[in-house]
């Protein structure tokens, strides 16, 4: 729409008429465009009920496959801003008793650097993006899916302890035998007798 006469000289009759025609034409074109959009389907996703599909590579909130995790702390070290906090105790038999595997989403920039180095590939970026909380402290999210020690774990630990004990005993015995052998090599009857008693 060009209502003014300034850009290209004075407003003559032909220009005046042309301006009117232009105005009507462009208005009709514009209005036909808007009415076309009026009859198209809205593209709205009504968010809490409907969610927009996200790309497969979307880097949302993390999820952890804790039963595979070997508690190697590599992810914790890889994170450039120290979001991940891992606390655990490793029991005999490689049973991990977890105390904490938390991620501070106050700081996290969703760079995925923690996920690449994981040796067993058990921490991933998920598709979930909504992290609405009433308080900042709630943004420190516990990723643990660990539900405490199970009977199986105790058995494993016990077995490991027993095995260790047995191994230790065996080792001790071996050592003793070696010692005895060493003693026997020496030319002393008393030592030999002592060694035999021990056996």
């Amino acid at each position: 729409m060009n209502f003014t006469s300034t850009p290209t000289g004075p407003l003559g009759l032909s220009r005046w008429l042309r301006n009117i025609v232009d105005t009507v034409r462009t208005t009709v074109i514009g209005m036909s465009i808007t009415i076309k959009y009026f009859f198209t389907k809205p593209v709205t996703y009504e968010y809490p009920e409907q969610r927009m599909p996200v790309a497969p590579r979307y880097r949302g909130l993390h999820y952890l496959e804790q039963d595979i995790c070997i508690a190697c702390r590599v992810c914790e070290k890889a994170c450039p801003i120290d979001c991940i906090e891992i606390r655990f105790e490793r029991h005999p038999g490689n049973v991990n008793e977890w105390f904490e595997f938390s991620l501070d989403y106050n700081k996290c920039m969703h760079c995925e650097l923690c996920c690449y180095p994981c040796p067993v590939d058990c921490i991933h970026m998920g598709r979930e993006y909504s992290l609405v909380k009433y308080d900042r402290s709630e943004l420190i999210v516990d990723l643990m899916a660990w539900d405490g020690m199970r009977d199986k774990d105790h058995v494993t630990i016990q077995a490991a302890i027993d095995k260790k004990k047995k191994k230790a005993e065996e080792a001790a015995a071996k050592k003793a035998a070696q010692a005895a052998k060493a003693a026997a090599d020496e030319p002393s009857a008393e030592d030999e007798n002592e060694g035999e008693d021990e056996e």
Partner: peptide, 9 residues
């Protein structure tokens, strides 16, 4: 109406 023209609801 403005919503529909903007393809909103």
């Amino acid at each position: 109406g403005s919503g529909r023209i903007h393809q909103r609801k």
